[in-house]
């Protein structure tokens, strides 16, 4: 019985250390990926600057249009021009 209990206790210690270690790795991997993507593949942040044309589309609206076209056409469609009337 004592053997089984000491075995269970060691599983408790090893188990908790491993779970903490793995979730620590989740944090490390996540942070490394965020830094790498921020450095090499950043997306322009904030709304797109308006051009000379007064009919420029806000970035949020544009993103919604792109997502809608992407979904409807299964990724095959492309937006070439968006005009305000």
């Amino acid at each position: 019985m004592e053997d089984i209990l000491s075995n269970a206790l060691s599983i408790l210690v090893i188990g908790m250390i491993t779970v903490i270690l793995i979730l620590g790795l989740v944090v490390v991997v996540g942070n490394v990926l965020i830094r790498l993507t921020n450095k090499f593949w950043p997306l322009p942040d904030g709304p797109v600057k308006k051009g000379n044309s007064s009919g420029a589309i806000p970035a949020g609206t544009m993103a919604a249009i792109v997502a809608a076209v992407d979904t409807v056409t299964g990724g095959r469609g492309k937006i070439t021009k968006v005009e305000k009337k």
Binding site: L12, G15, M16, I20, I22, L23, G24, V26
Partner: peptide, 22 residues
């Protein structure tokens, strides 16, 4: 990401009950 650690702490019940069940 720092909140991910609390997903580890909440596994303590698994290993504690292992001992209790024995």
């Amino acid at each position: 990401l720092r909140l991910a650690f609390f997903g580890a702490a909440a596994q303590i019940g698994i290993f504690t009950v292992l001992i209790g069940a024995i």
